[in-house]
Structure formats: structure tokens, C-alpha cells
Design a protein around this nucleic acid. Structure first.
Lengths: 141, 141
DNA sequence: TTTACTGCAAACATTTTGCAGATGT
DNA sequence: ACATCTGCAAAATGTTTGCAGTAAA
């Protein structure tokens, strides 16, 4: 759940050009609630007649992902989606399967799990990906 | 790391038809070391002139995944891949980023992590996906 | 013999790329 | 001014589907 200003600021801070199309993609992302796919943004853009090309949207998403202000997640369906998030170092997402909203979760004991897996399998574990799915407080009523 | 017989047995046990094309896909999977994509199998099949259609391979993979004898994983690159695995209830995979092999890991303390996330966010956590990446003992040797 | 399964080709979906022109800085 | 960025359309990928024919049970 990033606001447009944060997204734009990240572009600027990284030395990339703050262009009108990128601002517009930032607006689209900020206007989204929960996870979204590239196709969602393409559709939004067409609906609002923003004149954004498909490629531009994909490129902007890549950029935002690279800057860590959005993150790519894989839904249980196998679809690739994105969620806006704070550019904090390492964190995971809990995604509501009802409304699609996501919440960032920082360190939550994964350290021990990783150590345990390494100990048990003999692997050196360099990275992990954890995605959690469930129902958020609002959707449970 | 499933052998062909296990895969075929799973088809039979679930009441599906044990067909020649499915046997062949099972052989291809058994002959694989580490994770593989649908495209890998399509290429293998063509190389060995097995006369398997693309669609058949996709359908067989779906079936095997449904039976739990292979599992779909999302690589850090975003590619969809599959790994053979024992049809045990809930487990995760540690994937070697050097050779691609994977090892199943059963319960490794995720229970506590899930509880912690639920406590902190207020979500009811129903499912999670954990994939670990690193280097296996052989590849470090 | 019945119905599930297969191969093919075409449809569909998703993401990438080449390039001429527009535009931030 | 000049390199970066954009839009377009085409290409490259990845996956699904309809259907007539084939084969497992």
C-alpha cells in the first residue's frame, strides 16, 4: 500500500527520470487496494484513457520492483501479481484471499526455520520466499 | 525425485487411466535431476522422438501436480517449474541454485512462524508457501 | 463398448523487443 | 543537447482449448 508520492520519490532518489507515464503508473498503483497484475493496470489505464502503452506499464513495474517499492508475488493460482510495499530490507506478505489486500511482515522467526532446514539438509540456504495467505481482520468481520 | 513407478502408481490409485503417453511423461520426469519446466519436458520428448504432444505434457503435469507427486514451484526468476516429490502431506522444498536439485523438508518450525504472523497481523492464516534456495552439500563440496 | 485420453493446430494470454520519435534534465 | 524514456506493433513465450480419432478398462 504505497502512495504515489513514495513511488515517485523512489524513482527520483535512484536517479531515474520522473516522467509523466511513470507518475501515472504510480497513481494507478496507489489507487489499487490489494494485489494487482500487470493486466489490471493495463485495463485501469485504458479505462481512464491515460494513453499508457502496455510496454510502459511492464517497464514501470519492473522498475518499481527493482527499487523495492512494489514486490512481485505468486498467488496460489500461479498468477504473477504485485503488491505495493515499504522498501524495508527483508519482509514477507500476508495476503488476504478475500479482498486481496496485503500486509507486510518483518522478521517473524524465519531465522530459526532457515537454520533448522540448513542443519537438517546440509544445504547452505541463501534465500527464501515466504508468502502467507489467509483472511484479514476486516474480511472476517 | 520421484521414480517413474511411483508416478504411474499414483495415476492408477486415483482411478485415472494408465496410458502410454502418461507413462512416457513419468519416465521423462524420473529421468530429470532437479527442477524442470514444462518446456524442458517438451524438449526432452522431442529429442527422444516420443511423439508426445505439448498439450499432453501440460495435462500430465497438471494431473501429477493434482496427485501431489510433483509440485509446482516458482523460481526466484519468476519461472514456473516443477519438482518431483513424495506425496506427503505438507512440506517445502529447498532448491539448489547450482544444480537445480531439490530436497523435501517436512515440518521445520513453520508452525510457530505462522502463529506469530497471525498474532501480529490479526489475519487468520490458512495457507503459506515457502521455498528455500541455496547450495546443496554436493555442490559445495 | 464406452468414455477417458491424445495429438494437432489454433486460440489465447503474458511478457519482451526493435525502433522512430517524444521528453526529462 | 542528449540520453533516457515512450508508444506502437510485432515477436517471443507460455498455456489452454476444440475436436476428431485412439486406446484403456
Amino acid at each position: 500500500m504505497s502512495d504515489a508520492a513514495t513511488l515517485v520519490r523512489a524513482i527520483d532518489a535512484a536517479g531515474h527520470r520522473v516522467t509523466e507515464p511513470r507518475r501515472r503508473v504510480a497513481d494507478l498503483i496507489a489507487g489499487r487496494d490489494g494485489h494487482f497484475t500487470a493486466a489490471d493496470l493495463v485495463e485501469d489505464a485504458r479505462g481512464r484513457r491515460l494513453g499508457l502503452g502496455r510496454a510502459t506499464i511492464f517497464r514501470a513495474l519492473d522498475l518499481f520492483a527493482e527499487l523495492g517499492v512494489v514486490e512481485r508475488v505468486d498467488l496460489p493460482t500461479g498468477d504473477h501479481a504485485y503488491v505495493g510495499c515499504e522498501p524495508i530490507r527483508h519482509h514477507h506478505h500476508v495476503i488476504c484471499t478475500v479482498c486481496g489486500r496485503s500486509t507486510d511482515v518483518e522478521d517473524c522467526g524465519m531465522r530459526e526455520v532457515v537454520d533448522e532446514v540448513a542443519r537438517r539438509t546440509g544445504y547452505r540456504v541463501d534465500a527464501h520466499r515466504l508468502e502467507l495467505f489467509g483472511t484479514c481482520p476486516e474480511c472476517r468481520g
